[in-house]
């Protein structure tokens, strides 16, 4: 059989394409089985949650010690330009956080008092749903929504999907915006997304999250909501709590006492 140069080139091109397609199919199959395994099972073992007592927060106007402790622990860069800010836990106004609870006659001292917001480590996190690479996922053992900064491609789809504005993108070199570096925690690279990790690295050592430890008023309680004897469950039993945008069905795991 005699083949022309053109046919030869076409054939080689097709075989390379075919081999590539086969690889892709295998990858999808492998990923699907892996994905099935990584899905949180119907009855998760644990679900870590945070309850913030704003009554205690209001005792200290202008306080942001939790934010400072968190950002120092996790090498969160301090960027002056609000458009490029990176933040894991920070204060917001009452009307922004709870637009539906704001009725025009809401107690005036609610606005302007410290109100920390952070990633809600949702039961059904929209960010995990949309991530094309699994760089963010919900940990099955304790429900923490994690991030893998090695894998993130910086598409920013998760920022778009998060209804809480909890995610930040590294628009500029983060190390240049760090005065001090905590050597025990990595910094991030340009072009990846980051957010609160519920101090996964501290939980691994049996320690409480940095924000919980830093609060002088003990306003933040942390623990497993599925365990009725945990601190957070007891606190939720004792007072009426609300969550941010529960109507969206995301199931936030950060609770607030007003």
């Amino acid at each position: 059989m005699k083949i022309t140069r053109k046919e030869f080139l076409e054939l080689s091109g097709l075989s390379i394409l075919g081999a590539g397609a086969l690889r892709a199919v295998h990858a999808v199959k492998a990923a699907e089985s892996a994905h099935a395994n990584s899905l949180p099972s119907d009855s998760p073992k644990k679900q870590m949650a945070l309850a913030i007592d704003l009554r205690k927060c209001r005792r200290r106007p202008g306080c942001n010690l939790c934010s400072q402790a968190c950002h120092a622990t996790h090498n969160v860069p301090h960027i002056a330009d609000p458009r490029h800010e990176v933040k894991w836990i920070w204060n917001e106004g009452f009307a922004s956080v709870f637009p539906l609870e704001q009725n025009g006659y809401t107690r005036r001292n609610y606005n302007g008092s410290p109100l920390p917001v952070l990633c809600n480590h949702c039961e059904k996190p929209p960010c995990v749903e949309v991530c094309p690479t699994g760089a963010t996922w919900k940990r099955s053992e304790d429900g923490v929504v994690m991030m893998d900064w090695h894998r993130c491609i910086g598409c920013k789809y998760c920022i778009t999907a998060c209804p809480y504005g909890a995610r930040s993108f590294n628009f500029s070199e983060p190390r240049e915006a760090l005065q001090q570096v905590n050597p025990d925690f990595p910094t991030r690279s340009l072009g990846v997304v980051e957010k609160c990790n519920f101090c996964a690295e501290r939980l691994a050592k049996g320690e409480a999250p940095a924000c919980v430890e830093a609060c002088p008023e003990k306003a933040i309680v942390f623990g497993d909501v599925l365990d009725a004897s945990s601190d957070v469950s007891k606190a939720l039993d004792a007072s009426y709590s609300i969550r941010r945008k529960p109507e969206l069905g995301t199931g936030p795991n950060v609770f607030y006492f007003l």
Binding site: A24, A27, V28, A31, E32, H35, E129, V130, C131, P132, T133, G134, A135, R151, C152, I153, G154, C155, K156, Y157, F169, N170, S189, L190, G191, V192, V193
Partner: peptide, 23 residues
């Protein structure tokens, strides 16, 4: 061009997540 880490684009195929519409 809008990606922060375009060189990692291949991760979309290395770790495909059919839940994501980007896939």
């Amino acid at each position: 061009v809008s990606m922060g880490q375009p060189m990692r684009l291949i991760n979309v195929l290395r770790y495909p997540h059919p839940n994501s519409l980007i896939f």
